[in-house]
Every structure is written in structure tokens, then in C-alpha cells.
Design a protein around this nucleic acid. Structure first.
Lengths: 214, 214
DNA sequence: CGAACGACTACAAAAACTATAGCATGGCTT
DNA sequence: AAGCCATGCTATAGTTTTTGTAGTCGTTCG
């Protein structure tokens, strides 16, 4: 269903309105007043409302009218504003695009150094006790900043695992678990896919209470 | 400054308005329209607004008017709605009441089983690697539900530490660290203060991005 | 031509803001 | 004790703004 979003094409004006909403939510964390927005876009209130209605019927947002005089409650779906929580990345998948999205986490600080692009529910014990099964790990979708960081990696056609990644001199990488019962692995860069770099985690009630149902 | 809240006394009517706001935010997560609220309380809009103005000057909320016709933005301070993040509980303190509040976390699921009443920034290594220094641990302020849970405890006049707490038959308790380099400790219940039971944790960017400055 | 799109005008309803005034209560002066 | 004033709570009246509804007009595209 996550790929069903793009099914409905947007007209140019609708696209402008939608982008404006996204930008406003990123900047201020809130959605603008219809009147203000109409003024700043140089159109009349009614025109803007027509576009919002169109966007709602196409599924890009929800527009809940609350009667005359009351500011309407409009909301962008979690796909647009939150970060996806991925249960499983299928083995051999090209990236997170085709992943299984379980739910969404609300906008966790889009600010520069701390940004996280997606989240992963942990399955194995390779990083125990530091990272437990069922923890939710926040990841930034960058390749690799510095050696020794924890990354979500895949080797060839295998499933995703979390490991320390050490860069070795000759184009090889060492994948080092935290759990001493697991073995380190050395692979060449051509076999290795780094899906994201570890940024933080949620555990227990912190995880449960932040999930937005998809 | 956290104890400065109670300095300004509220008149009965102001108290009613304030309690109403708290209740509405707990139930719906949002604050009501002034008009609706006034009607449901049986007073006029202006009366309610005057109370809100009074509450603002006394520091109980912020009321940001945005011009005629626009719904005003009103917000309860973090003390009222969020859970406090405590940097240190002074040794020998009677509880979390006299603790040092660093910041506040936004309302994390006030729903029954998962509720957390306060948060603690971890200092030592007694629960490593499961819980690291600088992690933020969410705690429920209950005594002890079942043996073997992780709790924030104090022994006598010592500082707060996180340990597994096992109930022993003769009124004693065993405080068991996760880190094998630390030693377990057996104390009598009269020496032991349980400040809270572990519910979850935040680490890294998850922690940083959720903090509300006090 | 008809349908979709983008824009406008005009009017109605509800909310938010401003100003003013009527009471009650408590404290102060005389 | 009586009178006066300040303060707080409530209400009424009227203005401005926003939102909602209905209907119109021109352009573009199949």
C-alpha cells in the first residue's frame, strides 16, 4: 500500500500546494492557516480550499472541517512526515525502497547531524547486550562516515544485520558483532551493502508509545 | 525554578479552567476551542479569555493570540504535560520530589500498563552493556511489581543506581548489576528505597531529539 | 463539444477581539 | 460603623477575520 501513493497524479497547482505544506511542516512543525497560506501564495481562500479538497480525495492529506469560524484540522499522512519503521528488509533487496513498512515514527528532529531516515526493528542477538531484539534502531541513510561505527549491513543475498564496521586497508571491511558468541566476518566492499548508520535506539515503552499505526 | 510554579495562587474559577485544560489535553491530546470550552463550562467567551489571560500572567500557560478569527495558540508548559528528566537524585533525598529536573519529555503514552512517570539520565556502568551511560531510562513510580525487574534504587544515603531487584524470602532484597564487573548486594528492605521500575529507554538521537528544554 | 482545471465574486455563519458596564468582595479611611 | 475604592468575576454589545457554501467565467485538452 505504500506504493499506492503515487498512483494519483497531481496537477501543477495541487503540487505547489502540497510542497508548500510539506515545507511548512518541516520548518515550523505545524501546518499553516488557510487564510495566511492563501495570501502568501497570491490566491484566494476558496481556490486554495478547492485544491485541498482535491488533495484529500486523492489521498495526500486529511482535511477535517470543523464548522465555520473554526480552524480546520488538516494533517499530512505519516508517510510524508514521519520516518518508516521497517520490520524486514528482504534478502537481496536493492535497498530500503522495497522494504516492509510496519509503522511510522513521528518526526524526530530533522536537524542536520542528528537526522534519522528510517528505523529498523532488531531481530537477532548479534549486538547483544548493547542492542536487544525488539529494540527499534534509528538509522541515517548514509554510506559510512568513519570506521568503527555501527551500521545496518547486508552481505550478498543475506538478511540485514547490525554490526560494527571497520574499514580495512585493501578495500575489505570487517563486520564485528558486539556479542562475543558471534563471529566477526571480513568481506570485500563489492559484497557489502550498507543500508544505514546507527544513530540511536528506542526500547520498551519508549518504542511502543511513539509508533504511529500505518 | 521548578518549585516556583506553586508560588502564584489561583482563584477558584482559574483553578477550574486550568484543571479543565489539563483533562482535555490528557483525553484528546489537544487543547479545546475557546468557544466550545466556554459553552461547556457555562460561562461566556470573554470570561474564559480573561481567566486564560490571568493564567498566563501567573505563568501557568502561554496564550498566543493570532488576530481576530484565528484560533489562538495556547500551550501548557512542559511541567504539566510532559514527564521530567532527572539528572541527579541527591543522596538521601526523600524521593523524586526534590530531584534536579534537567528537561521534559513530551507525553509518552499515558495509557495504563506502559505509563512512565519520570525519566533518569544514566550515569554509571552497573547495567552495561544493556544500559549505557547517557541513556535516558523511562521509569514508572511504583514500588515493585515482580521480582527480577530492573529498578532505580537507593541504599541508605547512597546515590541512585539501576539494578535488577530480586525479592528474597526474609524481607531482604538482592541488587544485581548486569555488568559482571560489579558486585551484587543484599540489603534489608528497611535500607532500600525503590524510586521506580524500568519501562524503557532512549539512546542517541532518539533521546536528544525528544527533549524539551525546561 | 464537454470535462477538468484554476480562478474569482458574493453571501452566510461562527469564532475571536475590543470595549464597556454591572456586581460582589475585601481592604482602607474617616 | 459607614463610606469609599480597588480588585476580580461576569455579562452585553459590536467589530474584524476566518471559514464554509454556492455559483460564475475563462482556458485547455481529449
Amino acid at each position: 500500500m505504500a506504493q499506492g501513493d503515487a498512483a494519483q497524479p497531481l496537477s501543477p497547482a495541487q503540487e505547489r500546494v502540497y510542497q508548500r505544506l510539506l515545507e511548512h511542516q518541516r520548518r515550523t512543525g505545524q501546518l499553516p492557516d488557510l487564510s495566511d497560506m492563501a495570501r502568501s501564495m497570491g490566491v484566494h481562500y476558496v481556490t486554495l480550499k478547492q485544491h485541498l479538497d482535491a488533495l484529500q480525495t486523492k489521498g495526500y492529506l486529511t482535511f477535517e472541517s470543523r464548522g465555520r469560524g473554526r480552524s480546520p484540522r488538516l494533517e499530512l499522512p505519516a508517510e510524508a512526515t514521519g520516518i518508516p519503521l521497517i520490520g524486514d528488509i528482504p534478502a537481496g533487496a536493492p535497498g530500503i525502497a522495497s522494504a516492509h513498512v510496519e509503522a511510522y515514527l513521528p518526526n524526530l528532529a530533522a536537524s542536520g547531524a542528528l537526522r534519522s531516515d528510517f528505523a529498523l526493528r532488531v531481530h537477532g542477538y548479534s549486538m547483544a547486550d548493547l542492542i536487544q531484539p525488539d529494540d527499534i534502531v534509528l538509522l541515517a541513510a548514509v554510506r559510512l562516515a568513519s570506521s568503527g561505527q555501527i551500521c545496518a549491513v547486508r552481505v550478498g543475498e543475506d538478511d540485514v544485520t547490525l554490526k560494527y564496521v571497520d574499514a580495512l586497508p585493501n578495500g575489505h571491511y570487517r563486520l564485528r558483532p558486539h556479542n562475543p558468541e558471534y563471529e566477526a566476518l571480513t568481506v570485500h566492499g563489492s559484497e557489502l551493502t550498507i543500508d544505514g548508520v546507527y544513530r540511536g535506539l528506542l526500547r520498551g515503552s519508549a518504542a511502543e508509545s511513539l509508533l504511529l499505526p500505518n
